[in-house]
Simulated scan of single mutants.
Amino acid sequence: MAGLKALVTLAFATTIGLTFLFLACALPQYNNWWPFFVVVFYVLAPIPSIIARRVSDDTGSSNPCKELAYFMTAVIVVSAFGLPIVLARSPWSAPVISWGACGLVLAGNVVTFLTIWGFFMIADSDDVEYSMW
């Protein structure tokens, strides 16, 4: 039952993160969908960790496959935070998105990536049926 509560909490947190993202796209100043490209990073972020869990074995303390997966995940997460900042700064005279939209996307990134991290923490525990991931 505790696993079900955690899963519902993660689903609610994902909804909040995507709501921030939709609000960033719907700001009345620019009303464009450029911030929505961050969803690509949300989809790509868990893939290296999922592949590393399937390929590697847990024999040693340091596993190169998992280390590479952590590095690739970090690159994807940093790129997700960098994209809205670049869109808000360039060009300076007429930015693609407003700084308010940038802030909403960054808030959505924090919530969504913490949710993805929380799912992997729950999936690693032995008492939950989701450990097949």
Results as ranks from 00 to 15, higher is better:
Met1Ser: 09
Val8Asp: 00
Thr9Asn: 02
Leu10Gly: 02
Ala11Glu: 00
Ala13Arg: 02
Thr14Tyr: 15
Thr14Pro: 01
Thr15Phe: 15
Ile16Met: 15
Gly17Thr: 08
Leu21Arg: 01
Phe22Lys: 11
Cys25Lys: 01
Leu27Arg: 14
Gln29Ile: 05
Tyr30Gly: 02
Trp34Ile: 09
Pro35Val: 10
Phe36Trp: 11
Val38Ile: 07
Val40Met: 08
Phe41Glu: 01
Pro48His: 06
Pro48Gly: 03
Ser49Val: 03
Ile50Glu: 08
Ile51Phe: 10
Ala52Glu: 08
Ala52His: 09
Arg53Asn: 07
Arg54Lys: 12
Val55Leu: 14
Asp57Pro: 00
Ser61Asn: 06
Ser61Ala: 12
Asn63Met: 04
Pro64Ile: 06
Pro64Phe: 08
Cys65Thr: 11
Lys66Glu: 12
Ala69Gly: 05
Met72Asn: 06
Thr73Asn: 15
Ile76His: 07
Val77Cys: 06
Val77Ile: 15
Phe81Met: 04
Leu83His: 04
Leu87Arg: 00
Arg89Ala: 14
Ser90Asn: 14
Trp92Thr: 07
Ser93Trp: 13
Ala94Asn: 10
Ala94Ser: 13
Pro95Trp: 13
Ser98Cys: 02
Gly100Ser: 09
Gly103Gln: 05
Val105Tyr: 01
Leu106Lys: 00
Ala107Lys: 04
Gly108Lys: 06
Asn109Tyr: 11
Val110Pro: 07
Val110Asn: 11
Val111Arg: 00
Phe113Tyr: 15
Leu114Tyr: 13
Leu114Cys: 14
Thr115Pro: 06
Ile116Tyr: 02
Ile116Asn: 00
Gly118Val: 03
Met121Val: 10
Val128Ile: 11
